[in-house]
Structures are given as C-alpha cells and as structure tokens.
C-alpha cells in the first residue's frame, strides 16, 4: 500500500515528465510545422556574420518552404543585396525588378536596382531608373 507521500511523488514525477515531453514536442513541432522560420533565422545569422553564400541558400529555402509576406519580400530584398555584394548582378537585378512589380515606384528598390545596373555597366538603364526616382523620366522623349 502506497503512502500519501509516495503517491504525491509519483504525481510530481508525472507532472515533470509531462512538462519535459510538452517542451520537447513543442520544439519538435515548431521545427516540423514552421521550417520556413528556421531557415529564415539561419539565413539572418549567416547574413550577420557576412557569410552571404550560406545566407542566400537559407533564404531561398525559407521562401521554398512557404515564408509569407512581408517577410518573404524582406528576404528577397536581402538576397538581392547579397547577390550584388557577391557580384551576381544579373540575378540581383531580376529580384529587384520582381519586387518592383509588387511594390511599384518604391524609391529604395529603384535606387538599389539603378546601382546594380551601374555596377553591371548597364549605364543607359541605370540613367532611366535614376530619372524615374527623380520624376524626370519621360518615356517618349528620353531618346
């Protein structure tokens, strides 16, 4: 016959085991059901230590896993930045142009695109983008 104390000890033990299991399952569940955030955080960590190649891979995986807006837009913007740091200008331009379709007339995006076009020696296109930012671009009269 168990004493009251023994019963209480068993109850406490059950409670602790349940607590530990719930913590374990919550962490596991998070890794399973929110993989995009895991990749997002890993991408951010890699970005902070300037490991851009690694960060780009993690960010691309985050987007592939279904990272939602506006975080996916932020990730794509940072990916474009890193591509330009690593001189992958064509790929960076593509992303900026895609983002500009979603956020038209955004000056930050236009400026970033113009700079990358300049670095890629696409000076005529860069001039057009800078003039758009300044509100001085007239398609019919440009050339």
């Amino acid at each position: 016959m168990q004493t009251n104390q023994q019963i209480k000890q068993k109850q406490y033990l059950c409670f602790i085991v349940l607590l530990v299991l719930s913590c374990y399952f919550s962490i596991t569940a998070y890794h399973v059901f929110h993989r995009e955030w895991i990749f997002y955080r890993k991408g951010q960590d890699a970005f902070l230590i300037k490991d851009f190649s690694e960060a780009i891979v993690f960010y691309q995986q985050a987007i592939a896993q279904g990272l939602k807006k506006p975080y996916s837009s932020k990730v794509r913007y940072q990916t474009a930045e890193m591509l330009s740091y690593t001189k992958q200008y064509e790929e960076a331009c593509l992303i900026y142009k895609e983002l500009l379709e979603e956020y038209p007339n955004n000056r930050v995006l236009q400026f970033a695109l113009a700079r990358v076009l300049t670095w890629n020696n696409q000076f005529e296109e860069a001039v057009i983008e800078y003039k758009k930012i300044l509100g001085e671009y007239h398609e019919n009269h440009y050339h």
């Binding site: 506006p70 837009s73 955004n106 000056r107 930050v108 236009q110 001039v127 800078y130 300044l134």
Partner: peptide, 28 residues
C-alpha cells in the same frame, strides 16, 4: 506601419539619386 513595406523604411533623398545620375552620365 506593418501594412506598408516594413523592410524598406530607408528614405532615398532626391540629392542622392541626382548625384548617382550625374556620375553615370559622366561614365556615358
């Protein structure tokens, strides 16, 4: 404002864009 562009809070003043434009025109 979470509804706007939370990742693009930077401002690009006109004079910055004009400076870059001036440089690029000289390259051309």
């Amino acid at each position: 404002n979470q509804n706007q562009y939370p990742f693009l809070n930077e401002e690009i003043p006109d004079w910055k864009a004009r400076w870059e434009l001036a440089k690029v025109l000289s390259y051309l």
